[in-house]
Simulated scan of single mutants.
Amino acid sequence: MSVSESEYSASWNSTEEGYTLVRNIFVVVVYGGITLVTIVGNLLVIIAFSRDLRISRKIANWYILNLSVADLTVGLVSMSVNLIWLMTDDWPFGEISCKLFLLVDYVVTNVPVCTIIFISLDRYWLLTKKLDYPKYQTKTKATAFIVFMWTFCIVFFGVLTFVWIPITGYEEEIDYSWNCELEATYHFEFQLFMIALFFVFPLVTIACLNIIVYRNIRERSKGFVRSKPVATSASKEPISASNSSVNQEQIDDDGTNNSLKKGTSDLSLISLRVQKNDSMAASVKTARKTEKSSVDKKQKEFNRHRKAAITLAVLVGVFILCWLPFYITSLLGTLCEICVPELAWEITSNLLWCNSTINPFLYAAMNLYFRENFIKLLGLKRCLKKHSEPLTSSTEG
């Protein structure tokens, strides 16, 4: 090797090392920050659930707790291990560790999909069962549904991870010294099955349930247009009745003009008229209060269901945004592996994991009780005080 070639090689190695160092710093700062936010955010959800009875007593929030447990595991396992993988460019843990990692990763990323379905069902049952909802949906049933989700995903992906080759006879040559992939994902038919089972079916189910909820809310909202109270016409009735009594009092029964009798009659009629007016006014006031209380109660119920529907719609929208690119990339990768660059795989995979990062912020933005607990746990009491003052005034209004 000549001197010039030696210098060029040294310069190239130095440049490559500098690039690797900058890249690793970027990965640690950006990706490590996202991983930390995922872990802390979901921990806040779990702590808020455990310490606030206003949150834990609602059945729907038990599904949110389950969602946060899965998302927390994504941050602790999937994203943390992938951070090491990104820095080393190779899989340094071997075959057994790879399969255990894949099992955990596939389970904790697909349990939230099942959870969102049950959250949608819970909202649908709340609207359709109405007063029978507390009897129909209990914590025991919610716990059974949650156990079923985890059991199904563990068994399903456990089979795919450890006994796919003995069952199907297909064998893919995967070098576990630098790569970690699920053998089943190399088959186009399996990718179609996965998309149908864990994306299309949940999406159609959630969309149908949301449409039913939306129609229910829209029908309820038609009766909330305030009209003039009917009692206003009744308030005029005592006046006409009193006028009639006044005209009637001017005519004496025997046609005489006895001033004493007339004065006494006037006082009695005036007293009777005042009593009637007071009685009618009290009746009108009571009727108005009853009407206002009934309308306010229905309005609060409508607002509660509408807010829940909006929250669920946002969760579903984020789910589509995070999962659809991953499945499209996976499907294209099975048809033409060289057509999908490595960067596309990294972006879509991490976008899927980032769904676990976004979820706690959705709860903070949509749920007042979660938001209050987050601010308290983070020590931002001043922000909570500033936030609660306009909220209280708007609620009173």
Rank of each mutant, 00 (worst) to 15 (best):
S283W: 09
M194A: 07
D175G: 14
L335H: 15
N258V: 05
D122E: 14
D71Y: 15
L321I: 04
N247F: 07
N61E: 09
E171Y: 04
C383E: 08
L391I: 02
I358R: 14
I117R: 14
D132N: 14
Y63W: 01
R306L: 06
G18D: 00
M149G: 00
Y170R: 11
K298A: 05
K386G: 11
V77T: 12
Y8H: 11
T395H: 10
V316T: 09
T329R: 12
T168H: 03
K261Y: 05
F302E: 02
K129C: 05
Y170G: 00
F118N: 10
M280L: 13
F193R: 09
S235A: 07
R23H: 00
R220E: 07
V104M: 08
G169Y: 01
L102Y: 02
S2D: 12
V74P: 13
L332F: 11
F152I: 06
A48R: 09
S227K: 15
T290D: 10
D89S: 15
I154H: 06
F193N: 06
C114L: 12
V74H: 01
I96H: 10
V316N: 10
I165W: 00
L43F: 10
N277P: 13
I167R: 07
V69Y: 02
A184C: 07
F319P: 15
K289T: 10
T311Q: 11
V284T: 12
S259M: 08
Y214Q: 09
F302T: 04
S80K: 14
V204D: 00
D175H: 15
S9W: 06
E389P: 13
N179C: 03
T109D: 00
T161I: 02
C383V: 11
F145P: 14
I39D: 05
S235D: 07
K297V: 02
W323V: 04
L131G: 09
E7Y: 04
P229A: 07
R123A: 12
V159D: 04
I212E: 03
L368P: 15
G41P: 08
S240M: 03
D254E: 07
C153A: 05
E389H: 13
N42Y: 05
A196F: 09
G18C: 00
F26N: 00
S356P: 13
G397L: 05
Q299R: 08
A231V: 13
S268P: 01
W345I: 02
D253M: 04
S50Q: 03
S394A: 10
V225H: 12
K141V: 12
P390M: 01
Q275K: 15
K298Y: 01
M87D: 14
E5T: 08
Q248R: 08
S294A: 06
L351S: 08
N216M: 05
S50W: 01
S242H: 04
V77W: 14
L86R: 15
E7M: 13
L65D: 03
T115V: 06
N179T: 04
V213W: 02
R57D: 05
G32D: 06
E237Q: 12
L160V: 08
L351T: 14
F152E: 04
P166G: 02
F326A: 11
Y31P: 11
F26H: 03
L36C: 08
Y363L: 10
L209Q: 02
L351Y: 05
K385Q: 13
K307H: 06
L21I: 06
E301P: 13
